[in-house]
Design a protein around this nucleic acid. Structure first.
Lengths: 175, 175, 175, 175
DNA sequence: CACTAACCGAGACGGTACGTCCAGTCTTATA
DNA sequence: TATAAGACTGGACGTACCGTCTCGGTTAGTG
């Protein structure tokens, strides 16, 4: 009954926020500037997302990308496909940065958690389907990838993914 | 010849920072307020730690605790001791919060990395000694722990540690 | 031919505006809030009064009260009646506040002037009839009253009115 | 012992505020813009004046100008000198506007009153010395001037001043 | 009795300014 | 040289209101 929200504004704001985040990271996203760029009043932004963090969460939702559906290979091959894809998704420096930033933001404001988790939920579920959802092994793989991405800052490539899968499947042996 | 630094100030600042971080988290630590509480000039803080993040890292350093030296048991037993200890160290909510915050800060400002890493370096090294430093398995364990701590927000207890070690040693098997 | 305006809305809006102004002053009157209180759309307000200031002027109009018609007495007596009545009208704190606010608004937006002047036009005309419209003495009396009301913030009572009239009629003598 | 305030900033801020007020009136004074123009951080402004209104009051304090000291003439001549000077001071359109605005602001925030009153205190005192401080006639003259300035919006010139003084001294006679 | 123009509630929107918060740097006097 | 005190720059945040606009729906009086 009332004037409906302009959905184009939603899209334009999210697109700009997304681009800005990729290019300059969290601190480069300034609500005032974004509004000016998009040609929208600041209030229009805040009406939709009560906080910069909420906006960020909304913006990155578009980053999820396609989760591959590894049809036929062996368990190891299928896992390598999924983990490689995850590694590739997470690898770019701006993405690492955003993930670290968002993980921190989600700790500060719990309502952000589901939005942040959504980024890798599909990939996590795919791993869970292969490995058994309750086994925890999927999270071991995710954990190893995130550890490299935001803690140890080591490269994330196909080689790493393959080695990780092999090691995880085979079990660790010292030396 | 010159006036020496007051070492009591160092301790008092760190103590207050540590308490404040535990109670209110990263954003609750405001340098101005801290200085007033401690009865110290802001300059005195910044002369010692060039950045709020450095101060936070310093304050957190006191949280490290003792890394156990698992002498005699089997490989699995020794790992469980170390991983349980790590889990216990990382588990408390303020610690999770700070780790997320510091990990993000370290991504933003690379010079912070060694200070942040120092928080778990000893435990990581101990795991490396048991598992072979280059094998990457130590990081798999760390990754799994951090993943729970700051991403999936699941509990971190001895049971989890034992299951993680067992699964990691034995190798994953689907279903 | 078209749907007529709801005259009850006019009254309800004015009543609420009047009350709010008396209680909290100019800044307490927020068009958004008023509309919500009255149960009316903001558009309905702005269709009737193009500006908050116009609404304020309208609300205030209900405060005018009755101008006395001093029939019989001497010139001095008649003037005291009129000036006392004006003083009483202007004296209450909310009225002083609104007059100051409206006078300022009328300086900013000249189209408001007639509406604001209307508040005291009748009383001014009555004084003019007694004193000669072009003599300027009526405005001297009004000026003295307003000066107390909004500049010097002194009390406005019958005693003051009587002294003012006497002094004005007799002419000032130093000491 | 602490770094002292930069008194040049005070002066520069007041000067800019004063100019801006004269040129564009109350609403043209935007704290953000002023700070940029002066080359000062907004916080530096707010450290000195807690509110825009306080800044405005400070700025106009410089407008007081010189109160003439009417030495020798007759009472009427001396009064005409003073009232003409007051009229001239108050006459310019920006000044009328500011006075109306400030009078309203002083009604809203009583702590502003003394600063606003200071604008004409000297002239009021000078009138009081000629006419007797307690007689109230000084305020009658001031009231008449302010009434023209901000209520009736009539011109304020020497002719008016002379007529006002004459009428006030002689006493009003109808017709 | 249908049509049409104006009214109405609801609330989105642009625009503008305000005052606040904090990090990190700088300046002064003192120890 | 260190320190207390606190001024200063710089930048962003979120809030508050005003007045305009756009919907869907309602309500007369006219043709």
């Amino acid at each position: 009954m009332a004037r409906p929200r302009n959905t184009e504004s939603d899209a334009a704001i999210l697109a700009d926020a997304s681009d800005t985040l990729r290019e300059g990271g969290y601190d480069a996203l300034v609500v005032d500037d974004l509004a000016r760029r998009v040609g929208v009043a600041k209030t229009t932004v805040y009406r939709r997302w009560p906080t910069k963090n909420h906006l960020v969460a909304g913006a990155i939702a578009s980053w999820r990308g396609e989760t591959p559906v590894p049809g036929g290979g062996s368990l190891e091959d299928d896992l390598v496909v999924l983990v490689s894809d995850l590694a590739e998704f997470v690898d770019p420096a701006p993405m690492r940065r955003m993930i670290a930033e968002l993980v921190a933001a989600a700790v500060r404001e719990p309502e952000l958690r589901p939005h942040v988790d959504a980024l890798w939920r599909e990939r996590r579920d795919a791993l869970g389907r292969l490995l058994g959802a309750g086994s925890g092994v999927a999270d071991q793989l995710l954990g190893a990838v995130f550890y490299r991405a935001i803690v140890s800052h080591e490269p994330l490539d196909g080689e790493f993914a393959a080695a990780l899968v092999r090691s995880t499947l085979a079990g660790a042996r010292p030396q």
